[in-house]
Nucleic acid binder design. Structure first.
Length: 287
DNA sequence: CGGATTTGACCAGCGC
DNA sequence: GCGCTGGTCAAATCCG
């Protein structure tokens, strides 16, 4: 914990915390690295629709052998007002110099972030949604996380031989995006950055209730930060995915604005708990 | 044939 | 102001 706090404010410490690999978290430290800890990380993950059972035993590995402990680091980057409010005390987490500009709170008051999808038409400001990143040791780039993603771009990354891939959720009403890239330092490490929160249920795995890897991951990381558990890629079984998603109620009822980031985050200091309501994809439950 | 991926182009933000 | 870089779009292509 101390390490994490230290790491949060000190990139060098972050590197240290990461274990033997030397992370610089270049991918997101422009946003400020955020390290989960205790209740906080649960709350944050909950913001992304990952419901964590507070009393989850700190166990590694389900019976399915999905989990393996590795020494690596979890990094998060999050920079919404929500996170800012929750870390007000110490975490000067070099937050978001560039993003979430203060003006936004005054300007966008009545303009809920339109689907950032169409994002880049002239004059439109990009709206950053809360996001976090984590590292996964994996051979495969695209880890199965229970959701379906459509790749919409790929870019070469500066100082990295590996390209960065951009995905968005295939659910038309879901604005969640994720970036996947490999660490230039350790090609076996995949850095996944999520942005936004799913407003629908995950796609289930077969065998009734096997959770998504990342949800499981979230559940695993909540109790302890001393280790980082990465998901082992299950062999993809064709036709075994079953969609159980539901309409984006929260989103729809909110007048089409995103349920992912509270539109009034600036005007109404959100609590860790209530930030997103209780949008909890059932598939996310740790059994 | 429909959906997913690839890839070049475009745009915005940021630093110098 | 300019160049660099990240992020997104959209047409072309691929694949089941």
């Amino acid at each position: 914990m101390e390490d994490k706090d230290r790491a949060a404010s000190d990139p060098a410490a972050a590197t240290e915390f990461a274990g033997d690999t030397s992370w610089t978290l270049a991918a997101d430290d422009s946003d400020g690295a955020y390290f989960f800890s205790g209740d906080r990380e649960r709350s944050i993950l909950r913001e992304f629709g990952w419901n964590l059972e507070p009393d989850q035993p700190n166990r590694i590995g389900s019976d399915d052998g999905l989990w393996m402990p590795v020494h690596s680091s979890l990094t998060g980057s999050i920079e919404p007002a929500a996170a800012a409010s929750s870390r007000s005390n110490n975490q000067s987490v070099s937050s978001s110099s560039s993003e979430d500009p203060p003006e936004k709170s005054t300007v966008s008051d009545e303009k809920p972030p339109e689907i950032p999808n169409k994002g880049k038409k002239k004059g439109q400001k990009r709206i950053r949604q809360p996001r976090f990143a984590f590292m996964t040791k994996s051979e495969v780039d695209h880890l199965e996380d229970g959701y379906r993603w459509r790749k919409y771009g790929q870019k070469a990354v500066k100082n990295s031989p590996f390209p960065r891939s951009y995905y968005r959720c295939t659910n038309s009403k879901c604005t969640v995006k994720k970036r996947v890239e490999r660490s230039s330092e350790d090609p076996t490490i995949v850095i996944t950055t999520y942005e936004g929160q799913h407003c629908h249920h995950t796609v289930g795995f077969p065998r009734g209730g096997i959770i998504s890897h990342e949800a499981a991951f979230a559940g695993q990381l909540a109790p302890t930060m001393s280790q980082f558990y990465y998901p082992i890629q299950l062999p993809r079984e064709s036709n075994t995915f079953r969609t159980i998603s539901q309409p984006c109620q929260a989103q729809d009822e909110a007048g089409g604005s995103s349920a992912i980031m509270p539109a009034d985050a600036s005007s109404q200091p959100p609590t860790d708990e209530g930030l997103l309501g209780d949008i909890v994809p059932p598939g996310m439950r740790i059994r």
